[in-house]
């Protein structure tokens, strides 16, 4: 009446116990996955992980705020003058050095569409939503956005020009599905 699992060296007799034990542990491991995975985003949440937006509905000089993954996304139709202003800026004056072109994605023809600027509307300082108003000073000193919380000024390319925010407004992943429709939430598949 010896207790089997007690000798130091595993014997042939112990093999079956090791096999059983391994099988139990493996089964428990597989069972753990559903218990963990159920907390991941569910199918209905994932169905809104990407949104499509038709930019042809925009008017020149205006912006629309799309809701994407619980965040506001600024989609702005920039005027020729605004584009020129954004392009002509010397990047060396910027805190977060990015040219205007680096903040755009190409359309189906491979060319940039500088009139449409897409950026996540959350101030990179402490997460407030910056204000937009090209007609008066609410949009800040640089013709872009102004964050009312701690006074960060962004230009019309969403780049930080003045104030405490450390980086430019984040550009979400997006691509042109057609000439006028962008899909936010996904990069162009190469």
């Amino acid at each position: 009446m010896s207790t089997p699992v007690e000798s130091d060296e595993p014997t042939r007799r112990d093999f079956i116990h090791i096999a059983s034990g391994t099988a139990v542990v493996a089964g428990a491991g597989f069972l753990a996955w559903p218990l963990i995975d159920q907390m991941n985003p569910s199918a209905d949440t994932l169905s809104l992980a990407t949104i499509e937006f038709d930019v042809s509905s925009l008017e020149e000089g205006a912006q629309v705020v799309a809701k994407w993954r619980g965040k506001p996304v600024f989609i702005r139709y920039r005027t020729a003058a605004e584009i020129e202003e954004a392009r002509s800026l010397d990047v060396n004056v910027l805190k977060d050095k990015q040219t205007d072109s680096e903040r755009l994605v190409p359309g189906p023809d491979g060319k940039l569409k500088p009139q449409y600027l897409v950026a996540i509307g959350i101030c990179t300082h402490l997460g407030c939503v910056p204000l937009f108003d090209p007609k008066d000073t609410k949009g800040g000193e640089y013709g872009g956005w102004f964050c009312p919380c701690h006074g960060s000024h962004y230009d019309n390319s969403g780049r930080i020009r003045k104030g405490p925010a450390p980086t430019n407004l984040e550009v979400p992943p997006y691509w042109y599905m057609s000439d006028t429709v962008i899909q936010i939430g996904k990069e162009a598949s190469v």
Binding site: M1, P4, R13, I16, H17, A19, S20, G27
Partner: peptide, 21 residues
Amino acid sequence: IYLFLLALLLYGSYRAVWRDV
């Protein structure tokens, strides 16, 4: 299928443990 195989293994374990009893 997993549970069936596990049952076989555990039955083997059970027989091994109880062999001398």
